[in-house]
Write a protein that binds this DNA or RNA. Structure first.
Lengths: 355, 355
DNA sequence: GTGAAAGCGCTAACAC
DNA sequence: GTGTTAGCGCTTTCAC
């Protein structure tokens, strides 16, 4: 690799002159400058980014600390980040198999978390001693609340309101909720659903219409697997991911003989599993049953019918995360809370029903 | 940030002693070592990765140069890379919005390309002057052939043979091919299909059963968009991506009134679009029409019915890419060609038919 | 205008 | 065993 020293030697000047010529800073005799530039070109010179980083104390890299790369929501978050980062010559690295400790031996200027939970765990483990600028995407989780980290939030509460409004306008009143968690989980979607559904369901019905796919929600049900848990051979429809949990939810829905006319799913992946399996069980979507999900990612298109989904604006969240993180890195002022408004994306999975 | 200097000062020794103590190299008096380690712990010391990189001339980072992050195949390639890289403490960066020139200001020890085409373009543009270790995933493309770069190939020819064998065993003989390219494109899947289908179709039928979704294949058809091209408002079923092209292919299939009993799709995303749209057009899958696609990624599960797909083993390719790239980086011996064998993943989209 | 020199945080050869 | 020194590739200050 050619260095500035090589160029200096060939041009018969010192390294500092080369540096000034190349960086367009300070005084350099015009003819010399030209010669230096030419030689640099000839030698195919490019500055060593590591040396520049050591000098400037900036790596121009950001880490997106995220485990689930197959989750379309995370992908779209990432796309937003890349877009915003590019404008300021930053690169975003996508990584989640890193343990928190080794983040410190990663060449980054800052770090982005995909959720309050990840952010807080990090904060407690290393954030206190290692003060790397960090921001987090957020969804109104009330349990985890990392202190001193800016949060970019999409308003899930508002989102649930929008979904209910949309469904009610189309005649739906008995509306079930499909979640990968237990009903007492500190999740804003659950609170918001309960808040809405109290007008339509009796108190003792709520538990029935809540389809929580977790061990706690379905005690003793062998079909439930936790995230990442190995599936036993031969089981036809369950899996340890959102899609598999969605499929299982369809079976539970049938087993409970629910008379719900609409189902709201935690995210698009779960909805895909639910949709597929409920159709296999003989339901027609949207004729017998309407489905709406959260997220609004591109996978909603893969459904047949295409899913109606509430966009949590992942790309915008991603962009905002980078914007704020870079402010933090550059010691510019920023706020600790940003709130984005969700938007309903109409698909084909909801039908108007007669009362 | 604490440095070794800080520790040295506090411990009353020189930086080199600290270095030796921390790196467990050379002689350090036991009691001093202990003290140094304790102070490092207290101060929350971690070595500056940039400085280490400058010193060792290794960034411990690899770049996966890839544009399409929404493509499940690329995602699974990436997952394989991450897995293999982790074992050797390497990080993989996912990036494709970088122009080739700026790769040079990225802190990486090597670079991985997702296809022969990308690899060759890079090779011609910067690879000749900038000799960064590089490898590429490959699919038997015969047009692009980057010299001097190791290629990890999954055998698409063999894959097509497997698909035909599978389909023939189930009574299929009139088999169409859905591709995002023109029939004269240098693509091994097209060659292999022609090679197989010559036994079952007459020469002048071949063009009809080839469903190429490209401007060249469908001259004057306004519904065709090139990759990345903006879609005009209001068009219901086309798009500038694999999924949209798959949907359009379904319409072409119907318009040509093809009597094919099976369709082979370029990849899972195209198959998802084709599947969805062909069902909307009234075909029943697999009862009226069977579908097989290439790739074998997780999105095949989102189909209803679940797609039967030929796995090109993306994770394994990704792992192998990293394995070879690291050999290249570490100047260990390696071969220039590695070939993986594809595997058919059965789904629900193929049915046995009576002759 | 220019070049020597110091320094970013770390390593490693070498003298003591 | 330990400290001094030079150097990785670059920037920047400061004499000249």
């Amino acid at each position: 690799m050619t260095t500035r020293k090589d160029i200096a030697q060939k041009a018969g000047v010192s390294v500092s002159v080369v540096s000034r010529a190349l960086n367009n800073s300070g005084y350099v005799e015009a003819s010399k400058k030209e010669r230096i530039l030419r030689i640099a070109e000839e030698l195919g010179y490019h500055p060593n980014p590591v040396a520049v980083s050591l000098m400037t104390q900036r790596t121009k890299q950001i880490l997106f600390y995220c485990r689930e790369i197959r989750n379309a929501f995370n992908l779209e978050l990432y796309e937003g980040m890349v877009k915003a980062a590019k404008e300021q010559d930053y690169l975003v690295m996508f990584h989640g198999s890193l343990d928190f400790k080794s983040i410190r031996s990663t060449m980054v200027d800052g770090i982005i978390f995909p959720s309050e939970a990840a952010a807080e765990i990090y904060q407690n483990m290393v954030g206190k001693i290692y003060r790397l600028p960090a921001v987090s995407a957020a969804f109104g989780n009330t349990f985890y609340y990392p202190k001193g980290m800016p949060m970019i939030e999409c308003d899930c509460w508002k989102g649930m309101e929008l979904i209910f409004q949309y469904l009610r306008e189309r005649g739906h009143h008995r509306i079930a909720l499909v979640m990968p968690y237990d009903i007492s989980h500190e999740e804003i979607r659950i609170f918001a659903w309960k808040d809405q559904i109290q007008y339509e369901l009796k108190k003792d019905e709520i538990d029935t219409y809540y389809l929580g796919i977790s061990k706690k929600s379905l005690p003793g049900d062998k079909r439930v697997l936790e995230f990442g848990e190995e599936r036993e051979e031969g089981d036809p429809y369950i899996a340890e991911n959102f899609w598999g949990k969605g499929r299982l939810a369809a079976h539970i829905f049938q087993e409970r003989r629910l008379d719900a006319t609409a189902v709201i799913c935690f995210n698009d992946e779960m909805a895909m599993g639910f949709l597929q399996e409920i159709q296999k069980l003989g339901y027609r979507v949207p004729e017998n049953l309407s489905i709406v999900s959260f997220d609004g990612t591109f996978v909603r298109r893969y459904g047949n019918p295409i899913l109606t989904s509430l966009s949590l604006q992942p790309e915008k969240i991603g962009e905002k995360c980078v914007e704020i993180l870079l402010k933090e890195i550059n010691k510019e002022p920023f706020k600790y809370k940003y709130k984005l408004t969700p938007r309903l994306l109409e698909g084909e999975s909801v039908q108007k029903i007669k009362r």
